[in-house]
Amino acid sequence: MKKDEKPYSILVIEDNLGDYVIIEEYLSEYILNLRTTQVESFKKASEYLENENSYDLVFLDLSLPDKSGEELVLEITKRADGIPVVVLTGFADLEFGTKSLALGASDYLVKDNLSPAVLYKSILYNIQRVNFISELRESRKKYTDLFQLSPSPILVYDLETLNILDVNESAIETYGFSRTEFLSLNILDIHSEDQIESLPIKEFDFQKINKESPQKRARHLRKKGDFIDVEINPAIVNINNRDAVMIVIKDITENLKYIHKIEEQNQKFREIAWIQSHVVRAPLARMMGLMNLLESVEINPEDQEILNFIRQSADELDQIVRDIASKSENI
């Protein structure tokens, strides 16, 4: 039989040397690079777990000289901190074995039924299981973080009842409602009356929105009683087997204010351009007309030079006015 070549480091908390030797022997049959450490008391076990945290698995006998039973399982699993703990029981404690799982042990084995195959399988299974659990926990945390730490407010509401199911930190900050207050509202409560009809409430509406314009504008009510203009990105999500809507919200109140201000300024600017184009140019055109008139009469060469300078200056001024007018026409 080919042995498992991966290195395993296993802590055996067992005060009975005979039992420890059997375990060690059984494991060696399947595992080539085995390192077992035996400790005989709870006190020792605690020290080992605290100082060296690189064990792949812990075998725990249920009765030690200084601690046993429920308390022992609780304390060891706490100190093992993620390392799988497999409880070893005698027949008499069979019932307790099941209970130990609830206390945090990953598995239990009956000592009298031990065999090399059973032990090895238990090791593989429990190490794997712990890995899965920690991966799962991590990815769950990642998603929770994505939701909670998103700089955009996010609301989740039930598609049917419209009750708000979840909100993130940014939503709480933006709207001023506490989490509890949010969870007692439905999505219509944060909309102004005139907008309720255009809400993506029904699934049918939803598909329409997603197809035609994935983004939608709305006005949302805050706790203070004022409104913010928002752009919402809706998506259907499934929470506890119910359809829910998750909306990612972008507060565009400030943007709209800026746009409004810019439009106002453009209007003023157009007025100034109009003044340039017409009002300023009216007396200038008059001067140019006068020069046309002057050029029709004979004048002496010296005065002619002066006239030319005036003409040149007027033409330059005219060009400036035209430039301003043509640039401002594009606004």
């Binding site: 184009s277 017409h278 009216a282 200038l284 055109a285 007018a325 043509s326």
Partner: peptide, 8 residues
């Protein structure tokens, strides 16, 4: 007749 340079 106009002194305006508005192209519209």
């Amino acid at each position: 007749i106009s002194s305006s340079v508005n192209s519209e």
